[in-house]
């Protein structure tokens, strides 16, 4: 199953590595990755990953990172049931 995510990051040292490392460790294989130039204190990254695991789980795992400001799950083709009580996490910058 493929997932596409757009990730807003703080422009901190190691932020891109941290996000990419998490994906691989959590069982999501990186298919492609585009990292934008920094715009002030943030930058964005678009990735495609493949995994048997649900994309919304990866989204929530990425959102735990301090360097990650926002994650948009774009093409999640999951068969997951919706879990009541789960809401998107957004952070102040």
């Amino acid at each position: 199953m493929n997932h596409s995510l757009k990730i807003q990051l703080r422009n901190n040292e190691g932020a891109v590595l941290r996000a990419l490392g998490l994906m691989e460790r959590r069982g999501f294989m990186l298919e492609s990755c585009t990292v934008s130039e920094a715009e002030g204190e943030r930058r964005s990254m678009t990735v495609a990953v493949s995994s048997t695991r649900p994309g919304d789980l990866l989204k929530r795992q990425l959102e735990r990172l301090h360097d990650v400001l926002q994650v948009e799950l774009r093409a999640a083709v999951t068969n997951e049931r919706k879990v009541p009580g789960l809401r998107p996490v957004t952070r102040r910058i």
Partner: peptide
């Protein structure tokens, strides 16, 4: 407290974060 633990292994029917 951690949203990433919900349905990581066992599917939750209801979650309270």
């Amino acid at each position: 407290i951690d949203p990433a633990e919900i349905s990581k292994l066992r599917k939750a029917d209801i979650s309270i974060i």
